[in-house]
């Protein structure tokens, strides 16, 4: 079982890397979703698969039953899912804003902020470029 889940983690990671390397920003966003999913599966797997009983101490008992599942990875994954949900929601809003503002979802068109800036007149003739103030 562990092998199957580990393989699934690898496949999901591979898909996400393929998507993240794309130029299309929506695909990149989907790639992030898959990447965090892969991370969540990895955490879940690292808590060991197997016991399935709910990790609740029975009334009167002093400790967990022997076949209780490990609750910690579940708590970690739950936290990571909630955080991932927030990040993805923000990313989508940002991409929508980017589409409205910049008119593109192609990573190759995002060159504005990497443009070399004005050199002083002594070094290079100043270009009559307007600043985006």
């Amino acid at each position: 079982m562990e092998i199957a889940v580990a393989l699934a983690t690898g496949i999901v990671t591979g898909c996400s890397v393929y998507l993240v390397l794309s130029r299309h920003l929506i695909r990149v966003a989907i790639g992030f979703v898959l990447f965090s999913t892969a991370a969540n599966i990895a955490i879940f797997l690292s808590g060991r698969l197997g016991p399935m009983a709910p990790p609740v101490v029975e009334a009167g008992a002093g400790a967990l039953a022997a076949d209780a599942a490990n609750p910690l990875p579940q708590a970690l994954v739950l936290t990571a899912i909630v955080i991932g949900f927030g990040l993805v929601a923000f990313t989508l809003v940002l991409l929508l804003k980017g589409f409205i503002r910049l008119g593109t979802v192609d990573a190759d068109d995002l060159r504005e902020t990497d443009r070399p800036d004005n050199a002083p007149a002594a070094v290079r003739p100043a270009e009559p470029r307007r600043e985006a103030a």
Partner: peptide, 21 residues
Amino acid sequence: GTRDQVEGGIKYVALNLIGTS
């Protein structure tokens, strides 16, 4: 919400999301 900021923001978000993953 300027053009520059949205563009820089997309790059910043993308690279940092990979880091935290």
